[in-house]
Structures are given as C-alpha cells and as structure tokens.
Design a protein around this nucleic acid. Structure first.
Lengths: 330, 330
DNA sequence: TTGAAAGCGCTAACAA
DNA sequence: TTGTTAGCGCTTTCAA
C-alpha cells in the first residue's frame, strides 16, 4: 500500500483509460463520452488526485504565479501595493510570490534571479542604481518596474512624485511658511524627484530649501534626525519628510522635545499610510495611491504575459491630503 | 539560432561531457578533474546557463520554498511575523511564498491547496474553525500552525494570550480601574483566550466584564464601535481592545467625541505594533512578540522539513508594554 | 473519441 | 573520475 500522492497514471490505470485522456479531461481541453468522463471524475474523487503544478509548469512553461519584490514589508506603503496587486492577481487566477528585499540592494539580485525561474513574470521595486539593473531585462521574463527610469525601456508604473511634492510645497507656502526644510532619503530614486518638486516650487517664490538626509526611510530614523533639525539656531517653520514613517517619528520626537505641532512647526509626509490618521495632530501627506499602483502594476504585468500591448509607462496622479499637522502660520 | 534558454544538455554538449557530469558539478555534489571543471565553468558562463528549479524540484521533490499564509498583510502584527519568518528562511536558503487570505476563511482552502504543492512546507495562520482544518493535516506537507489547537495534533507556535490578558487586566485594576470593558473580535480563535484572561482576573477581584464585539480587527472598526461604547449611560473607565489597530481607531474616535485620554478612559490593545508608539497618548499594549513568533514558526518548520524532532508546541511569553494610554484613576 | 509515445530539464542509481 | 540510463508527473502531437 503506497501512501504517496496519486499521479495521473494512477488515475488512468484505475479508470481504465490513458493518461492522455485524463490529462485532457482534467484541463478541460477536450470532452469525452459521458461514461468515460464519469469514471474519471469518480476515480479522481476516490483517489483524491490533484495535478502536480510543478510537472505541469515544467512542460507548459507557465506557473500561474507572479513574483512581487518589495523593499520592506513593514512599511505600509508597500503592503498597500501588495494588497492591490494581490487582488488583481487573484481575480486572474494567479498566485503572488512575495519577496522582501529588506532595503538591501545586494540581496535583490540573487533573490530575483531565484524567483524569476519560478514565475511567469515579476513586478519589481528596486533600490538599485539604474545602471545596475540592466540584467533584469535579460531574465527573459515579463517584468514591470516601479518608478521612473531614464535609460531602460521597461514597462513601468510610477507616481508623479515631482508633482506631488510641488503641490504640497505650494500649499505650505500658501499657508505662510517660508523656512521650509526637507528630511530626505537620498538612497531612494524617488528622493530626487520629490526634492526637485519642492525646490522648483520654492524657487518660484524666491525661497530656498534646507535639506537633511536620513539614512533609512523609517520612523526610527525620523525620531533620530529630529534633534538636529529642531535644535539648531533657527528651526524650520515646516518640514517635509521623505515619507510618512519618517514624519511620524519626527513628530513624536519633536513633541517629546517640547515643541507644539503644528504651532511650532508644520510637518508633512508622503504615502498616506493609514497610521498618519491616528497621530495627534493627524498627518498631512501626499497620497501616492499605493494600492492603485499595485493594481496598475499587476494589470500591466498580466497584460504583458498575455501578450496584450500596454503603454510602457503608467503614471498615477498623487493627491494632497490635508490634515492637522500643517497649519496657517500667522 | 535558438534564442531559448540553455539547458543542461546544451552545456554538456558544448563542454564535451555528459549531462550527469554537469549536473553533479553544478550542484557541487562531486569534484572533477581540473580541466573538466574549467571547461564546464567556462561554458556555463558563455551560455549563461542557470538550472531550472522547476525541473529540479520535480525530481528531488524539494523546492527550497516554504509557504506562509497570513490573514491580512496590512496588519503590522502579521508583517512582523513575516519579517521574522523571512529572516530565518533566508538564512537557510529558503524563499518564502507569501499568501494573504485577507481575513476570508473561504479563500483559505483553495489558496493553501494550490500553495501546498509548490512548497516544502507551510506556516499557516487561519481564521477557520478548528473542525474545518482537518484537511490541512492531509496535505502531506510539513506544517506549522499559529495559535492553540484543542484537538488537532499539529506543530504549533502560540502566544500566551490568556496570560497576556491577565497581566494587562491586573495592571488596570492596580491602577484603580473598576469598570473595565473589552472590545473583542469573536471571529478570532484568540479572542476567547484574551477574554478568558481578562475575566479570570476580574473575577478574582469580584469584578465583571462588559463585552463589545467588533466585526473586523481593524482601526476602522475601532472607530465605528467607539460611540456605542462611550455614549451609553455610563462609559467604562478602561477599555481593552482585541488588538492595537482597534485601539488606535477607538482612541481617535473617542478624542473626536471630546473625551480626554487617559483621563476619561484608559485604552489598551494587543500586539505592540510600532504605530502604537506614535499616537497621543502612546498606546499601552501586550507585546505578543510577533517577530519572534515568525522566527519560532519558521525554525520549527525547517526543523520538521529536515526531520529534526521539535516540541509540538512552542509558547511565546507576552510582555506588558506600559505607555500613556493607561493611567491611575484617582 | 481515445491512446501511444515522445519528450520537458533535470537527477540518481549504477556502470565503466 | 566520468557516462549511461531510467525516470520524475505531466502535456502534446499524431495516429488509430
């Protein structure tokens, strides 16, 4: 009595037909005479047969699985992306294989190479320099990339960070802020875009930007940077953070230092993570539409897999979300 | 000129050796004479050969991939678990295949069945009733389960929710709270344990528990439930929430209704998600050690896969984290 | 409508 | 040290 899982051959033998027949029937590739179909159906149920996706994939070359590589699963921005991507994949019968590169550019390549052979396509969020990702294109797998690329011709989904930053800055200026600072994260490709948007808007009003650079896009880092930002000769009237996590950390540390928000300083971030809603004051932010980005990326990937042509670049418009962390400076 | 990816046969032919030789060499299963090794190495580089993990897995029966099924990727409790599990898997050369069942018990079964054939083992967080998960054991794959089970004999990692709840309640009583309420989530298996711990402690002090039941373990739901909890004839002096997300939502809504925290009501949750640190007041919580749970589960799973015996149950001790959302009632 | 047979890319005895 | 050979579980012509 062999305990192991039944194969298509076991089914074929028990049903008195050929494996080819079973295969075609299981995949709905062909209809058979009622008696044959009934027997097969019965035997499958009896044996508890289920096809081996590995063997199936090896032959067909399709795995019905897509890879999604993100930078940090504990950042709500990325989990929202996953949420959106997951929903679309699910609806199309695909399983998402998630890889968390943990903000470590060196880990990306081996992880993605291992992943690439197991999936029909991949969506990649990368911290690598553009010059270092040429190999991605050589993996002969459909691929969608997050974020603007200047050289590479990859299908891409990107938020308009420049515009989002401009909108936010414009609003801060309207509120009467003049000394505006940026707590950035220069390791990210998007940092430049955001800073560019801010600077452009400030320049248009004859203002200059004071820039601080964080070493991680996290709340902890926001906390850490707070003292050097707030305890100089003259602290900024408004601070734009690279993302909401940093803003959250900064706000907490600033309050601990005795500053009142937004009276002493206005604070804003990017991403519109749900937790920006639960701080006091609630966080003003630029909603980059994370979930929608995930949806768009997965739709683009599945289209590419199916061979349906799509635009190379999908741009998602950001939305400014005003909350209490920014206020008029009168 | 065939554009397709090179197989082991291409390498063998080009190197003038047998496929077996290439296979063994690639897998480091055996050493060969220097000239042979050099040629193979060179040819592999030239052709850009990389072995097909699918074919490999089909034969060896091992995929070097493990599945991890969670209830909601946007809940930081689960992302911490993933973080811990991921780290361990990575260190052992395994890739984690993540599945988000989105708090939908019906989706679990098909998702897990599809997953089970592609991985060497699985870690499962389930919202299903214990009576409905017997099939899990029949999937002939190593499996680790999160949460206490009463009947099933599965390897399990669980936090001591009962004790955590007891500790928290005890502290609240010490702080002088008498009218204590619980905002639960009865769909979760852990809800009972938490409520049990609270009740036991209250009973020991001759107190009774007032219970509200939420329909989702989310911040939104916490917000929604707030008015019915706070705007009755007499509102509780302290509220324990099923998790931090609900607590966050509740706190925000309560403050919006004009209540001062913790002066009017103390609030506490479970999980110690990082965002409990960034609210005002910061959230008192029971740290269930999410990341450690992920680590423990993955270690247990990999041990099971390797055939190393482990204890059936790993229990993780919770820690009470006191912050400003709970205060003395004098 | 059904089946025989030839693989998919790789590994694992077993030989040489 | 190296090669031969027989599959893993499945799909897919092609023939019956």
């Amino acid at each position: 009595m062999k305990k192991s899982v039944p194969t298509i051959r076991d089914v074929a033998a028990a049903a008195g037909v050929s494996t080819a027949t079973v295969s075609k029937f299981v995949n709905g590739a062909q209809r058979f005479s009622p008696p044959v179909e009934d027997t097969i159906k019965r035997v499958i149920a009896e044996l508890g047969y289920r096809s081996n996706p590995l063997a199936q994939s090896m032959i067909t070359g399709r795995t019905k699985t897509v890879g999604l590589s993100i930078l940090d699963i504990t950042n709500p921005h990325f989990t929202s992306i996953v949420k959106g991507a997951n929903r679309v994949a699910q609806a199309h019968g695909y399983t998402v294989l998630l890889v968390d590169t943990e903000e470590n550019p060196e880990r990306e390549r081996p992880l993605l190479e291992a992943l690439s052979r197991r999936v029909d396509g991949m969506i990649v969020f990368s911290r690598m320099q553009e010059k270092d990702i040429g190999w991605l294109t050589e993996m002969d797998r459909p691929l969608v990339f997050f974020g603007r690329l200047s050289q590479l011709e990859l299908p891409t989904v990107a938020s308009d960070d420049h515009r989002g930053a401009y909108m936010l800055t414009r609003h801060l200026i309207t509120q009467g802020h003049r000394r505006i600072a940026y707590l950035g994260f220069s390791k990210s490709r998007r940092d430049e875009e955001r800073m560019g948007g801010i600077k452009e808007c400030l320049a248009a009003h004859g203002l200059e930007l004071c820039v601080y650079d964080g070493s991680a896009p996290s709340a902890i880092e926001g906390e850490r940077m707070c003292s050097s930002i707030m305890l100089g000769a003259e602290h900024p009237e408004a601070l734009i953070c690279y993302n909401d996590l940093m803003a959250l950390g900064f706000m907490k540390a600033a309050q601990t230092l005795g500053f009142r928000l937004p009276a002493d300083i206005s604070v804003a971030g990017f991403d519109n993570i749900q937790f920006g809603n639960y701080t006091s004051p609630a966080l003003t932010t630029v909603d980059l539409q994370s979930e929608r980005m995930g949806v768009a990326a997965m739709e683009k990937l599945l289209a590419t897999i199916d061979g349906t042509p799509t635009d190379r670049l999908t741009r998602i418009e950001p939305q400014l979300i005003l909350r209490a962390s920014t206020a008029n400076r009168n």
